[in-house]
């Protein structure tokens, strides 16, 4: 692991409060994930890749935008690793950079429909923008 990789991994661990070393590589998180099919890197890979310092690939992954934050992986992990927190931390690394918002206000009108609750918009902003 290069120095940069190590530093990035440490940062993700600090933001998330997750210790990927607790993982016993059972794959239950990915077994239970409802967004699995939409992801390029899956929950168990997030844990393994943060451990190995492969953050660059995760920063560019599709998965950080498709995690539903349903906490199924958090609830069911037998080692209390909490993969969802890692995914959130990687996403924050992206959107905390200036101009890197994934969802912009101008996009909203076209996404609206009559019934769409505010909650959806607020959630999406919280998840995708800073």
């Amino acid at each position: 692991m290069s120095f940069e990789e190590k530093e990035m991994a440490e940062n993700i661990k600090r933001i998330s409060g997750v210790n990927p070393r607790k993982c016993m590589k059972c794959g239950k998180c990915s077994g239970t994930c409802p967004a699995y099919e939409e992801m390029d890197y899956h929950p168990h890979e997030f844990v393994a890749m943060v451990e190995k310092g492969r953050i660059d690939e995760l920063l560019a992954s599709k998965s950080i935008w498709t995690c539903l934050s349903c906490f199924a992986c958090v609830e069911r992990c037998p080692r209390s690793v909490e993969p969802a927190k890692l995914i959130e931390a990687v996403r924050l690394e992206v959107i905390r950079a200036q101009g890197a918002n994934h969802l912009k206000a101008v996009q909203i009108p076209e996404l609206l429909d009559e019934k769409l609750p505010q909650q959806a918009i607020v959630s999406a902003f919280r998840k995708y923008s800073k």
């Binding site: 967004a35 539903l68 349903c70």
Partner: peptide, 19 residues
Amino acid sequence: NECCGGYMTLENRALAQKK
């Protein structure tokens, strides 16, 4: 107790529809 698709309806409507 499985996810309905949540806020994903804005990002990936197909996923929300599936769920």
